[in-house]
Design a protein around this nucleic acid. Sequence first.
DNA 1: GCCAACGTTGGC
DNA 2: GCCAACGTTGGC
Length: 157
Amino acid sequence: MAETKYWLFKSEPSAYSFDDLLNEPEQTAEWDGVRNYQARNFMRDDMRVGDRVLFYHSSAKPTAVVGTARIVREAYPDATAWDPGDKHYDPKSSPGETVWMVVEIRGERRLPNPVTLAAVKANPKLKDMLLIRKGQRLSIQPVTREEYEEILAMGEL
DNA sequence: GCCAACGTTGGC
DNA sequence: GCCAACGTTGGC
């Protein structure tokens, strides 16, 4: 059996929040609109059902990890890429020649105590997280098991 | 609203 | 293949 992996997904809550995810049927949503090759490669090549996800609110007050989720469906083509009316339309992609992919995630649990970016930066155990690396903008990032568990511990009161 | 950092595009 | 210009991300 493949080893469980750990991820951090960023979302601007004004566009799509953790509450939005929890309000979906089955708390499950397609993670579409990703238009970055590195993030796509993580989804396409590395994510497996059961992998754990930290859900992070960017451009929010405060910016924080607010909940957990799981990968519930592995990568398949992102149909929003060939919808001319979609915000993330990309003419490079077509049903015959897929460029962009999605996975599905299921919202799991809201953290009682959201772990703010400031709290992450203040914790020496988390000093290597990509999230706090200068200039790091990836919307999907790998996280180590240790980092994931530290965030969860901080997320309890 | 500003702007640094980064990825992508396109001219050459 | 280089690199300047441009668009986007995201913290502040």
